[in-house]
Computed example of a mutant assay.
Amino acid sequence: MGDIEAPNSTGQQQSVFQSILPSKEFASSRKGMLLIAEVGLSFISFVCFAASTAAAFVTFPLLEFLVALFLLFAYSTKFNERFKGFLWPLMDFMRCVTASIIYFIISIIAISKYVDGSSKAAGVFGFIATIVFALDFYLIFNELANFLKQGGESTEETSRQQDEFSDSDSD
């Protein structure tokens, strides 16, 4: 009776929380699973590097965690479809390429140079992150290549242009 909260306030808070999380359809898609893995591995690498003597490498996993978290949010809420000015697949491709290269380098350094266990764990999770990011940029590259092969040309226009070109050559 003297309750300050409205009876529907917990349901409203729950729906707000659910709107932040990715949808089930996106989370079960290939891109969703890769982004969730990238977020998780980047966070684990960040924590391991923060606890290790190789704390100089903590910046990159943190930045990659934040960028992957933003892209997970952007793709799951279709935020990327509202901003057509950005080349989202190309930006995602460049992010994955640079992340896989840098994770590979800092993982090699963390495992070979530092002797504490958390540095070794950060290196191992970095190698796993390297594989996930490399898989992601490989899949993005294949999608971009297929788009570029099909996107610029329609079959009717190319056949008409070829017919016109062959007619002008025969004259």
Results as ranks from 00 to 15, higher is better:
Val124Met: 10
Ile105Lys: 00
Asp136Trp: 08
Gly152Val: 07
Ser118Val: 05
Ala99Trp: 00
Asp92Arg: 03
Thr155Pro: 09
Glu153Gly: 01
Leu72Arg: 07
Ala122Glu: 04
Glu164Tyr: 11
Ala121Pro: 01
Gln150Ser: 12
Phe104Asn: 08
Leu72Cys: 07
Ile101Pro: 00
Asp92Glu: 14
Ile101Leu: 12
Leu72Asn: 05
Gly85Glu: 12
Phe104Ala: 15
Glu81Ala: 10
Ile101Lys: 00
Asp163Pro: 00
Gly85His: 08
Thr98Gln: 10
Lys149Ile: 14
Ile101Asn: 00
Trp88Leu: 05
Ile102Pro: 05
Asn80Pro: 00
Leu87Thr: 06
Ile108Ser: 06
Glu156Asn: 11
Ile102Gly: 01
Ala99Phe: 00
Leu148Val: 07
Thr130Trp: 05
Arg82Phe: 13
Ser166Val: 10
Phe73His: 12
Thr98Lys: 03
Leu90Ser: 04
Val132Cys: 06
Lys120Trp: 04
Ser112Ile: 11
Ala145Val: 15
Ile109Arg: 08
Ala121Lys: 07
Ile106Tyr: 11
Asn80Glu: 13
Leu148Pro: 00
Phe79Gln: 03
Arg160Gly: 03
Ser154Arg: 13
Leu72Gln: 13
Phe147Trp: 07
Tyr114Trp: 12
Thr155Tyr: 06
Tyr75Thr: 05
Asp163Trp: 07
Lys120Leu: 13
Asp92Tyr: 02
Pro89Glu: 01
Ala122Val: 00
Ile105Ala: 15
Met94Asp: 10
Ile105Trp: 02
Leu148Trp: 12
Gly117Ser: 14
Asn142Glu: 10
Phe73Cys: 09
Glu164Trp: 06
Ile101Gly: 01
Thr130Arg: 04
Ile140Tyr: 02
Ala74Trp: 05
Ile105Arg: 05
Lys149Trp: 08
Ile131Pro: 06
Arg95Gly: 00
Gln150Gly: 01
Phe93Asn: 06
Glu164Arg: 10
Gln150Cys: 02
Phe133Met: 07
Ala129Tyr: 01
Leu148Met: 14
Gln161Lys: 08
Tyr138Val: 15
